[in-house]
């Protein structure tokens, strides 16, 4: 497609505005984290790096971050296993109610978090009578994380010719070997993309988390939400946020690299790389 110079200019402006909307608020967070003031306010009153050591030293923040990583990792792991298996079942086998299953699996992502939260809270505390812990948060997060993995995996399997799996069987491989050596490697980038989205979604989830987390335990979003509006140390919260931003760039970078490598080797099937803006 070719553009007229005018269209090109307008596209550039549109891209510029979009990027500005994404990154200016992040920049403001960075500025706030460098602001020595004890109260929240614009413009910053000076410059200090002292919030960062304080943030790192803060036990509450550290524990909350660790909890968030734990929850997101385990929920993503559960989602990867269940989502992949569900996608395989739906796209590689015919069974009664297959279409209903592929629809029902998608519902949790559309449900309002508050509904999921109430439903799971009632199920855990009243019906099952178990205490709310990080594990109940993990299970709650897994319900919507599964959808992301399932969606990505199922889309990939639909495009992947079954003759690859037939060829593997034809060459003597048992179904398990075929799954391990042919199916999974060809789904890899889709699983990376799905897993990454699941991780990100779990990492910043706050609504469902509030309803399913045990008393006294905190994930990072819960901690930030609680601490932010307390008087005294707003800079520390922003420093934590900046650290979270930096940490979250690592998996995005890895995923971007992995999917890019694969897109040069995968035939036909366009790789569903996560949409990652390159700053």
């Amino acid at each position: 497609m070719t553009f007229t110079p005018l269209t090109k200019t307008m596209l550039r402006i549109a891209v510029g505005i979009t990027l500005a909307f994404i990154y200016i608020p992040l920049l403001i967070i960075l500025l706030y984290s460098l602001n020595p003031s004890q109260v929240l306010g614009w413009p910053p009153e000076g410059f200090t790096l002292s919030w960062f050591p304080e943030a790192i030293k803060d036990d509450g923040a550290r524990e909350a971050l660790l909890n968030s990583l734990k929850v997101a990792t385990v929920a993503t792991a559960i989602a990867l296993v269940l989502g992949t298996l569900a996608a395989l079942a739906v796209s590689r086998h015919r069974f009664f109610g297959r279409d209903s299953v592929s629809f029902l699996v998608l519902i949790p992502i559309a449900l309002p978090g508050i509904v999921t939260g109430i439903a799971l809270n009632a199920t855990f505390t009243q019906v099952m009578g178990i205490d709310l812990t990080l594990w109940t948060v993990i299970i709650a997060h897994a319900t919507f994380c599964v959808v992301l993995v399932f969606n990505n995996a199922a889309a990939r399997l639909r495009r992947m010719s079954t003759s690859l799996e037939d060829a593997s069987a034809d060459l003597g491989a048992t179904p398990w070997t075929t799954f391990r050596r042919v199916t999974i490697p060809n789904m890899r980038s889709a699983l990376v993309a799905g897993g990454l989205l699941a991780f990100a979604l779990s990492f910043d989830e706050i609504v469902v988390t509030n309803f399913t987390i045990g008393a006294g335990e905190k994930t990072l979003p819960v901690w930030i939400f609680e601490v932010l509006f307390r008087p005294n140390q707003p800079g520390k919260v922003y420093a934590v946020a900046v650290i979270a931003i930096l940490l979250s760039m690592i998996p995005v970078y890895i995923a971007n690299r992995m999917t890019r490598e694969e897109s040069t080797t995968a035939t036909g099937a366009g790789v569903a790389a996560p949409a990652i803006a390159e700053p």
């Binding site: 010719s161 003759s163 037939d166 593997s168 491989a173 490697p185």
Partner: peptide, 17 residues
């Protein structure tokens, strides 16, 4: 996988990875 036959597929079915 238990049969001593091999197939050349119409779409070749080469493993892309």
């Amino acid at each position: 996988y238990a049969r001593s036959v091999n197939t050349v597929f119409q779409d070749y079915a080469l493993f892309p990875h």
